[in-house]
Amino acid sequence: MSTVYLPPRLFKRATLSLAALALLVLMVGVAVGVGELPIPLQTTFDSISNKLGLSAVPVNRIHETVIWDFRLSRALVAACSGAGLALCGVVLQCLLKNALAEPYVLGVSAGASAGAVSVVVLGLGTGAVSLSAGAFTGAFAAFVFVALLTNGARGGSERTILAGVAASQLFNAVTAYIISTSANAQQARDVMFWLLGSFSGVRWPEFSLVLTVVLLGLAVCLWYAKALDAFTFGEDAAASLGIPVGPIRLILFSITALMAATIVSMAGSIGFVGLVVPHVMRYFFGPLHRPLLLASAVAGALFMMLADIVSRTAIAPQTLPVGVVTSLVGVPFFAVILYRARRSA
């Protein structure tokens, strides 16, 4: 009987892929099982297997309803959101050559929040402009604002962060003004909780949308992985290799804005995922962007599902906004990066 031989590199990739898939499946099962009504891991997998037509195992009706109507869609949206935000962080850190770049720090999340709140509270474009479209408009406006402040300026790394802080303050002020002047008490409470990050209201339609957007974003980023490798050495180096710098930057910025806006429109402004995950994955997988993008997407999905689990269990029966959990991890990490940058300067 002949055996199939795999080169060491392919064997390593296959092993890592299987391990990542197993971790994702296990984390989804854990996320579905945690809550006021604990659901055994085996019950979750039996219910999914039954739904896919792979088995016919008897499952408790209440458990099955909780799994399919509430928790599974929430866990999958959290996974897609984490993957998307991590991809945004990888791309922005490369294009801006800034270790602190990510949608939250650069004001993109604040811009998306302002756009989404304008649609919800003010009713702008009702019937024609969806929540995601409003969030995308706000996110792109934040990108333009940061680009205008940093265009042609020296010391781009520091100026980019300062421009991002200014964008965050501006769009957060716009959001606060809209809520203060136009929202009723219930709207204000719901919007403020949503802005801190929450997956409590997401269902299967939201999963379909965010999955499509994140898969599209991943495909575009992988397509331009070699261009991202070239951007690591600067735009002049990329241009010398024949890479059309301007069009590729526009495409990657646009897909980043699209992913960030879609996630914000569903789950609110969740910070620091795009900062923490790419740096950790870069430490393990190196600077080449093809493996880095894939690893960051998987790690981002795992991190966000874990953060959602903590948000539901830390102060049970109440729910802690998931953005608070990610900030508790991200702020110390942010401080460490700033300290290391200061020492190396």
Rank of each mutant, 00 (worst) to 15 (best):
L320Q: 00
A128N: 15
L170T: 01
G33P: 03
L252C: 02
N184T: 02
F207P: 13
M266T: 07
D236R: 06
P291R: 04
V119S: 00
F145C: 04
V32K: 08
A56I: 06
L6S: 13
W194Q: 00
T326S: 09
S200E: 05
S81K: 02
A267Y: 06
G156E: 08
G123W: 15
F231R: 04
A188V: 07
G246H: 11
L294Y: 07
S73C: 13
S118H: 04
G125H: 11
L328H: 12
P291K: 01
T313N: 09
S132I: 07
T256I: 10
L92K: 00
G271K: 02
A299M: 04
V210S: 05
A230T: 11
N172G: 14
A19D: 07
R312S: 01
E235T: 09
A101N: 13
T212M: 11
C88G: 03
A225G: 07
A316T: 10
A219M: 11
V57L: 07
A227R: 03
V329R: 08
G35W: 02
R282F: 03
R282Q: 02
R189A: 15
A261Y: 00
G82V: 09
C221N: 14
S200R: 02
V144T: 14
L148C: 11
P205S: 00
P244S: 05
S311E: 00
S17A: 15
G286D: 10
R159H: 12
L258Q: 03
F284G: 08
V220H: 10
H63K: 09
L241K: 05
P8Y: 12
A31E: 05
V146C: 02
L302Y: 04
L10E: 14
G84F: 02
V329G: 08
V144G: 12
P247V: 06
S132Q: 10
F70I: 14
V310Y: 06
V117G: 01
K12A: 15
A261S: 02
S182K: 13
L241S: 05
S296E: 02
A301T: 01
A114E: 09
Y339G: 11
S200C: 00
V273H: 09
D46A: 14
S198D: 02
V59K: 07
S200Q: 03
V191S: 01
V202I: 07
S81F: 03
V57Q: 12
D229E: 01
A267G: 13
D229R: 05
G300H: 03
S327V: 05
T313R: 10
V273E: 10
S208K: 15
Q318L: 12
I309W: 04
G274A: 08
V213D: 11
N60Y: 03
A99K: 12
V34D: 06
A316L: 05
G156S: 12
E102M: 08
P247M: 07
V298L: 09
Q186L: 10
Y177K: 08
V202A: 02
V117M: 01
L124G: 12
